[in-house]
């Protein structure tokens, strides 16, 4: 536990010292701002944050989070710091969880900036706080899943670019393509693809519905990616 906190703190510190993280944060703020300004916050538009959360933020996160997670492990492999790290009394699980929470806390900072939009909206009409909490819970789970997947790909390669491309590909597939693909096939593949469709699970949170099976989906897939990352890290030593 102690080691996880130490590790997460270092990762968070590395983000605040890295130009990439600032660039990523800037892109996130700019693009969410654009989506809000053009899509939601205009005359005649429905007074709702739903399109912003349901589509734009998810889309932006698919691109932004892999850029945050790509360096987490591949940079350690590349620079060789994995050698000094893994010869300390720290386990693979602690390293992986530490890195995960480091990125997750940075993501929380990004999410906090999104609060600006509901606050702006509240000037014009009453705010549905319960809905907002539900949206945010969905975003937390979605981000956790994306970060875990990105971390896994970062553990697969020494090259950050490869890590980021693989993460984009998988997240885009799971988020946007799975639903469409499910229509093309029959039987159990359809069931699997439907179940893996991140947007379908996320949509419930955007609508303000809290259902256990969607919560379970996010927690299990996120856990599965973290597990694979640990295994990947353990495997690497045997090569």
């Amino acid at each position: 536990m102690h080691n996880i906190v130490t590790m997460a703190r270092r990762e968070l510190g590395a983000y605040f010292l890295s130009p990439i993280a600032y660039a990523v944060a800037a892109v996130f703020l700019f693009s969410t701002g654009l989506a809000f300004g053009l899509g939601t916050f205009r005359n005649g538009a429905e007074s709702s944050l739903r399109p912003l959360f349901e589509f734009w933020v998810v889309m932006i996160l698919v691109f932004v989070l892999p850029m945050l997670t790509m360096r987490l492990l591949s940079e350690e492999f590349r620079a060789g710091t994995i050698e000094t790290l893994m010869t300390l009394p720290i386990s693979e699980v602690e390293v992986v969880l530490g890195k995960f929470f480091g990125a997750f806390v940075f993501y929380l900072v990004l999410l906090a900036t999104l609060l600006l939009y509901p606050i702006l909206m509240s000037i014009y009409g009453p705010l549905d706080v319960q809905l907002l909490i539900c949206n945010y819970l969905g975003l937390l789970l979605l981000g956790a899943l994306y970060i875990a997947a990105g971390l896994f790909f970062s553990a697969c390669t020494n090259h950050q670019i490869i890590a980021v491309l693989l993460s984009f590909a998988l997240l885009a597939l799971m988020t946007f393509a799975a639903e469409g693909l499910a229509q093309q096939v029959e039987g159990w593949p359809r069931a699997v693809l439907q179940h893996l469709s991140v947007r379908m699970h996320f949509a419930n949170f955007v609508r303000g519905m809290l259902e256990v099976n969607h919560l379970v989906f996010f927690l299990t897939t996120c856990g599965a990616f973290l597990f694979l990352t640990v295994k990947r890290l353990e495997m690497r030593r045997w090569q």
């Binding site: 080691n3 590790m7 270092r10 510190g13 010292l17 620079a79 994995i82 050698e83 000094t84 009394p89």
Partner: peptide, 23 residues
């Protein structure tokens, strides 16, 4: 290790403190 890998963005004191914590 032979290539002395370190975290470039950290300060020396910060780095040693981080390593000490993990120990």
């Amino acid at each position: 290790p032979e290539s002395t890998p370190l975290y470039p963005e950290m300060r020396v004191r910060e780095y040693l403190d981080f390593r000490g914590r993990l120990r």
